[in-house]
Amino acid sequence: MTLHFAKAAELLIPSLFHGFGVVIQATVLGFLLATILGMIIAIGRLSTIKIVRGILYLYLELIRGTPLLVQLVYIYYVVPLLLNLIASMFGFKTNIQIASVTAGILGLGINYGCYMSEVVRAAILSIDKGQTEAALVLGFGKYEALFRIVMPQALRSIIPSLGNYLVMMVKDTSLLAYVAVNELLLRTQNFASQTFLTIESYTFLAIAYLVISIPLSYFVKFIEYRLKDK
């Protein structure tokens, strides 16, 4: 058996370049969604309203207790069916579908949002209560104290952890192949099954992920270092 890296490179690498675009799109939007959800959940879980805390706790257990891959499949295949079913119960005939990239972004955002909420929550709790009190005694409200005084300090301390989640998310975009997102893994699978260049194709795929994740993790380390400096 001879290996044909040159041939595989010529045909697969341009395709992988297109796949990069999809990976970046899914990561950026998924991460944005995850950050927003993470903050909302974190703040909600620190709420004084018991029912809000209870609902969010249940939600977290639900999301963290199921695999990301299952969630992606659920959002892509099941949620549209459920929506159509509910609509039909009200006498509407609908054909709701979720685009595969949209499902992927939603899945990544919802899943990572839960894990990030714990990081945000811990960071908020780690800020000395005196900071909140100092803002309160100056006449600021509870939420002003949280958003203007506590959150900026908390966010600084979580930037390194958020960076690690970002690197993880880049790699987890490979799961989107299972909901028909034409990202790196799906492109490679298709190519390998057509050409039987299995060794070459998946080697290039692995390298493609390293090309993104190694520089990204060094960038995260650099940011961490800069923050420590101050």
């Binding site: 000395d128 005196g130 900071q131 009190e133 100092a134 803002a135 005694v137 100056l138 005084i149 900026p152 300090q153 600084r156």
Partner: peptide, 12 residues
């Protein structure tokens, strides 16, 4: 107004 034992200035 209030002044605390631990000052509680805003570090940022």
């Amino acid at each position: 107004g209030m002044v605390f034992q631990k000052f509680n200035l805003f570090p940022m």
